[in-house]
Write a protein that binds this DNA or RNA. Structure first.
Lengths: 358, 358
DNA sequence: TTGTAAGCGTTATCAT
DNA sequence: ATGATAACGCTTACAA
């Protein structure tokens, strides 16, 4: 039985399309495939989505037709009919920041062999921008959301939780245990500081990150706890509030030095800060690591090539991104899963050494 | 005249939706707005798209209704009906590379206040991956494409040219003059080398980037031309083929040193390479800039905080991204425009100085 | 297992 | 200027 009959309007529109736009290769639709394979549109849709069993013969015919005609399903029609977009919204805070980029890259990798594509947006660390950006993403009907870095107000977060599958990366939020990926910043900072203590240092300075950031605060706590645990009194004047950038490192060191504060070691809240601190010391003729040891945080790629190479805390950034993608996929497919544990690691290079004689 | 009549199927579907999914807030559609504002769907669509004049009263009523009901047009329906997606595909080569990230960031900025959203994909420097990625993007019905960094074969490029509005960033391609944004790598490299020459250096080494990259080759040419122009003979043994990364810098310097090659200055094809080179010199106890001057390329943020801060060529990366977005927008709206000229700048810091006595 | 047909929410065409 | 209505290409009851 031949199925050559085409709906009048379909024939017409196809005709018009070809007349008006003879150069544009006509878009192959499931109707075309259906005709070609001698089945109905529904059947084509079925083999496309694997929703209902289809006879092997027909399935093969459909597949062959799709291949032959180079069929690509129209995402809009699909989205409109099904309500799914196969798109994941990723909210990052800073294109160009080593750690957030690495996480983003991980997300891309984690999504690479799936039917989902990421669409990125930049929240720029600002809650209101973050909210707007989330809104845009939802307007684009993303199926799920990955929010990297704290930036959303809890009210927005609450709303998200009941609106759309969401995974948080790089910040811990109460009530989000099942969909939240983060490292133990406090423990990592403790280890880093501990490393300095073990090298004999007792006058250990710290330059924090942006005060309102969770990461920043936890690293500060870790620093404090390590000192306290070792019986070292905390000197508040040896703590400088920075902003996670190179300048903060410079300013921090200058500030300590100008006030005559002595220190033989420094723990910076991230590598960029450590670079700045190292430069400030260099300007003053203070040697690293002979006079002052430095530990950073992040292990961004440049850390291995500074002079001297920087001892720092490695964050499994890529892995976090990949894991986030996996968790979200599981969430979308309502599969059971456990959030992976993410470990940091102290990478010891040459910017730290045993404390010399004062 | 009241317009309370609702099509049977519409009422039904709305009813079913509410029955089945009482928690989900019903999606407001233009039909709802039409009813509310006492006009037809068409009119709503008209004020939405500004396609045909609409009486001020009705327009206001529609706008009010949209605001009141918190209407968000459905992107899929829109895309399906209009064939436009208001999405721009951005193909980058490397999430995490300072320069490409900065360009991407620029694209985001350039698109920020438009109706278009970017969707990113990573070509990973591989032509076949690049092609696949472009295919995916087209499958997603992006309205335009921005390809950052060379990665596509010319056959693919030819096809793109007649298929979809495309802008190339960071590589020059013949025949794409109107939609191609790039810096004058050769001139920039010439300036950088020239700077070293003016400081009295004659033994100037160069570590290239990946040999197959256009950027890399042009910087090499610029280096050669500067030397030639100054009447300095080119020593091929002072040229090392690198890969645009820190290790290349280390290996390059080691290679020169091991072969007993003398040089008092070094031009690296990018900053990462310069960092590596600087480290290798440090390891050998060779001072920068007292013994060897170094110039990098890119001016990535870390360059200002190395010891000593690195003299380097600034690329207007952000601006390139912003310009790319603008050019594409103009292309999409068929507006006239001229591709902006992008200038580089030599940022002189402390890694270069007058050649001392040998 | 398969086909029919009714949507999905817009835009675009055609009258009026 | 405005309203009906077809069309966009696909999914999904419902029937068979």
């Amino acid at each position: 039985m031949l199925r050559a009959i085409v709906k009048p309007h379909e024939a017409l529109s196809r005709l018009r399309q070809n007349l008006l736009d003879p150069l544009v290769k006509k878009n192959v639709t499931i109707s075309d495939i259906a005709t070609q394979a001698n089945v109905s549109k529904s059947t084509v849709s079925r083999v496309l989505n694997d929703t209902t069993p289809v006879h092997e013969d027909k399935r093969k015919a459909v597949l062959a037709a799709m291949k032959k005609m180079n069929f690509e399903p129209n995402v809009f029609a699909r989205g409109l009919a099904s309500g799914q977009s196969y798109t994941i919204g990723v909210v990052t805070q800073n294109f160009g920041s080593p750690i957030y980029d690495a996480i983003s890259q991980g997300v891309v990798t984690g999504l690479a062999d799936t039917t989902y594509s990421p669409i990125f947006a930049d929240g720029q660390w600002q809650p209101d921008i973050g909210e707007a950006v989330v809104q845009t993403l939802i307007g684009r009907k993303v199926d799920g959301l990955i929010v990297i870095g704290s930036s959303l107000e809890s009210s927005v977060l609450d709303r998200l939780k009941k609106t759309i599958p969401t995974v948080l990366v790089g910040w811990e939020v109460e009530g989000w245990e099942k969909q939240c990926l983060f490292i133990d910043n406090e423990q990592a900072a403790r280890n880093a500081t501990q490393h300095l203590i073990e090298l004999g240092h007792t006058q250990i300075a710290h330059i924090t990150g942006i005060a309102t950031h969770q990461d920043s605060m936890r690293r500060l706590w870790g620093y404090r706890r390590a000192l306290t645990a070792a019986g070292i009194e905390i000197d508040e004047d040896l703590i400088f509030e920075g902003r996670f950038d190179g300048n903060s490192g410079v300013l921090g060191v200058e500030s300590f030095l100008m006030r005559g504060k002595r220190f033989t070691a420094l723990f910076a809240s991230n590598d960029a800060t450590a670079f700045g601190a190292r430069l400030a010391l260099y300007r003053r003729g203070i040697r690293v690591p002979e006079d002052v040891s430095i530990v950073g945080f992040d292990n961004q790629s440049e850390a291995a090539f500074t002079t001297p190479p920087l001892t720092t805390v490695r964050q499994p950034a890529q892995e976090m991104g990949i894991a986030a993608a996996e968790v979200l996929l599981n969430l979308l497919h309502k599969k059971e899963f456990t959030v992976p544990k993410l470990e940091t690691e102290l990478v010891i290079r040459e910017s730290t050494r045993l404390r010399g004689n004062p």
